[in-house]
């Protein structure tokens, strides 16, 4: 039971992913389909980012060492002992002797690329929707298929 509870984030994210996928499959409206695709995509981002989370960690931006964990004004930057370097301006890295932990930067990099590519695919999909609407005067998928059948666009009867 405790094992399942330690993985609750994956369970919820899978539910979110499947909700987005269901919107893509079940709706006949092209714009609603694209909104569902967007939800699906954002949920995949959530899956990747939760994998890279380190408990008790902090964002992967290296902290500069300014002398035993205190900044210029003497405020402590971190709780606990820091014995890595004595204020030589180097960055504090995780490891024995420090209690600083960074979350995994690799999923963040992958998802940054994926977000931008996702907007590119979304804009192409929306442009196609606008063109379909100009020609068919509808963006409902079943009406479009009906018109293709009526006008013999599938070319079966010639």
């Amino acid at each position: 039971m405790s094992e399942l509870f330690s993985q609750y984030n994956y369970v919820v994210v899978i539910i979110l992913m499947m909700t987005g996928l269901y919107t893509v499959f079940a709706s006949r409206n092209l714009i609603k389909k694209l909104a569902g695709l967007s939800v699906f995509q954002t949920s995949v981002f959530l899956l990747y980012i939760t994998i890279g989370k380190v408990s008790g960690g902090q964002p992967p931006i290296l902290i500069e060492d300014k002398g035993y964990g205190a900044d210029k004004d003497g405020h402590a930057l971190l709780d606990g002992p820091i014995q890595l370097a004595a204020g030589d301006g180097s960055y504090i890295l995780p490891g024995p002797g420090t209690d600083v932990l960074y979350s995994n930067p690799l999923p963040h990099v992958l998802i940054l690329t994926a977000i931008v590519v996702g907007v590119a695919t979304l804009s192409i999909g929306l442009a196609l929707t606008v063109r379909i609407r100009e020609v068919y005067h509808t963006i409902e998928e079943d009406e479009i298929q009906n018109m293709d059948f009526v006008y013999n666009l599938e070319g079966t009867a010639d």
Partner: peptide, 23 residues
């Protein structure tokens, strides 16, 4: 899901190798 490592696990395979090399 049962095969995934626990949420926030510092020693999970995903968090242990190349990402830490970058840091």
């Amino acid at each position: 899901v049962g095969d995934m490592s626990a949420y926030g696990d510092v020693n999970s395979p995903a968090n242990a190798y190349v990402g830490m090399d970058y840091i």
